[in-house]
Amino acid sequence: MDRLTEEKIQRFEEFVDRRLKPDLVRAIAERDKVFEQQKVFSDLRKNLENLEKNSVTSLRSMVNLGSEVYVQADVPDTRHIFVDVGLGFHVELTWSEALKIIPTREEKLARQIEEYTRLIAQIKAQIKMVSLGIRELLQLPAE
């Protein structure tokens, strides 16, 4: 094998190891984050629906002060809830308003997940292609 091919193969491998694989890892981590958010909102929706169903007007809860030390908290009025809308802003909403907003939020998150999935697939395809190229340069038979 001449040196030119060898160099080429090395460059390809470096591209896979240093560019594509870290990209893939990052994309997967991002997608996991979005998954988590989606779960948070779906939980919130379910809980709100539960409250509505049982028509709860006051609530007793435990607040985590940190280091797993809990203290009792009382919610005298459950008609209003503050929902995180991003960038640290919480909007005071009634239940019905919240139940309208949350699905749109979920939809958006689902779209983000889809995007990330596509990106991940793309990176995977690129990795596959480059490794096929390397295989060709090495003149190995395709699988």
């Binding site: 919130l44 809860s61 809830i81 995180d84």
Partner: peptide, 14 residues
Amino acid sequence: VPFGKAAFFPGKII
């Protein structure tokens, strides 16, 4: 009073 991670109720500690 946290209600899930994305929301909270106004309340007080008793």
